[in-house]
Simulated assay, not measured.
Amino acid sequence: MANQEQQIIKHTYDTIVSQSESTQLLFQHAVLCQVYLPYRDPGKEVDSWVRQQGKAYFAIQATKVFNPQSERYDKLLGLPFGPKARLILTHINTLALLQRSPNLEVSDTITSFVKSLGLPNNGYQIDAIKNQLGRLAASMISIAFSPGENRSFQVDSKIIKGFDLWFPKNPNQRVLWDGNIVLSEDYFFSLMNHAVPLDKRHLAVFANNAMAIDIYTWLAQRLHRVSTQNSEFVHWVGLKEQFGEGYARMDHFKESFRSNLRLVLTQYSNAKIEEDLNKGFILKNSSPPIPPKTHQVLKIDKP
């Protein structure tokens, strides 16, 4: 294995965590807690998506996949979108951190996976999960973050490097994973150092709501980093740029954002965020959804 060293890392998943604790944890990449996938299907004619928020940058490009019927690379699945793509990523991220490997062993059925995400177990949900898995597997991403001081990191690769995209057409046939999912090493090593822990029970409440998931993950990675001495202020204009995909009018966006924020706060009750006279919101230092702990972990460096 690559060069390894013992380090104390805060808010990073540790395989020493007990099984009872780990079953309540999911993880998202820190950049994807600030910039997001589309809420809705952009359509097959849109094959790229670029977003920036502060010092976080994200781009995703749909690519053609091999069609075994035509024996050509001619099938464009489209960009991943919506709440299911977000939930799939958190599940895959968690497997990678738990197994500490980009080669994920997934001996489970699609049906069980749907249940683990807190979604109803029916044909519609299973088809939707398969569709989003295929879109994620067939997409190239670029993740970049600049923390300042002339430092930055960037990943240009696929998230899922290997996956069986073709499923049985017979609806009565038991649909199985192909045994493993292979993440790109660039994404895996980036995730190992930039994973944000989330409460699986909270995400289950937002399982059909992409904006609520995005607000929740944003607050999860943001609030605990706010200074204990000084609050931070975010304007409605900035919030609309970050969360307002598809909203032409500010009043419509405000109504939706407030409604989704109220939903998020029913779960993330420790979040200290207050609206300020219709100008925006005040953010105050808050403990993250997963109580802060410091774990002794084995950090894996890229070869």
Rank of each mutant, 00 (worst) to 15 (best):
A2G: 10
A2N: 06
N3I: 13
Q4E: 07
Q7V: 15
Q7R: 13
I8C: 06
I9K: 14
K10H: 12
Y13D: 02
D14Q: 11
I16M: 14
S18N: 08
S18D: 12
S20L: 15
S20M: 07
L25A: 03
L26E: 06
V31L: 08
C33Y: 00
Q34G: 07
Y36V: 00
P38V: 13
G43H: 07
D47W: 15
S48C: 07
S48Q: 09
W49H: 07
W49R: 01
V50F: 09
A56Y: 06
Y57T: 09
Q61V: 09
Q61N: 12
T63W: 11
K64P: 03
V65H: 04
V65S: 15
F66M: 09
Q69E: 13
Q69P: 01
S70E: 14
E71I: 04
E71G: 02
Y73A: 12
L79P: 01
G82A: 11
G82Y: 05
P83A: 01
A85R: 04
A85F: 01
I88H: 00
T90K: 00
I92C: 05
N93E: 05
T94D: 01
A96S: 15
L98S: 10
R100M: 10
E105K: 14
S107P: 01
T109I: 08
T109N: 07
T109V: 11
V114R: 03
K115P: 07
L117T: 03
G118F: 14
P120Y: 08
N121S: 11
Q125S: 10
I126L: 06
Q132M: 07
Q132R: 01
I141S: 00
I141Y: 01
E149T: 01
E149H: 05
N150T: 06
Q154Y: 01
V155R: 02
V155D: 00
S157E: 04
I160D: 02
I160L: 08
K161P: 03
G162H: 09
G162L: 08
F163R: 12
W166T: 08
F167K: 08
P171Y: 09
R174D: 14
V175A: 12
D178V: 14
I181F: 13
D186L: 12
F189N: 03
F189W: 05
S190Y: 07
N193E: 14
V196C: 00
N209E: 11
I213H: 05
Y216D: 04
Y216S: 05
T228W: 02
F233W: 03
V234R: 05
W236Q: 07
W236I: 10
G238Q: 04
G238Y: 03
K240I: 00
K240H: 04
K240S: 03
Q242C: 01
F243I: 02
F243H: 02
G244L: 02
G246P: 15
Y247L: 03
R249T: 06
R249V: 06
D251K: 10
H252S: 11
E255N: 10
F257M: 12
F257N: 02
R262I: 06
R262G: 06
L263G: 15
V264I: 07
L265I: 10
Q267G: 08
N270M: 11
A271Y: 11
K272W: 03
K272R: 15
I273R: 04
L277E: 15
L277R: 13
N278A: 14
K279T: 15
G280A: 12
F281N: 10
N285D: 05
S287G: 09
P288S: 12
P288Y: 04
P289I: 06
P289W: 03
I290W: 07
I290L: 14
P292D: 12
P292V: 07
Q296T: 08
V297W: 13
V297K: 04
K302G: 02
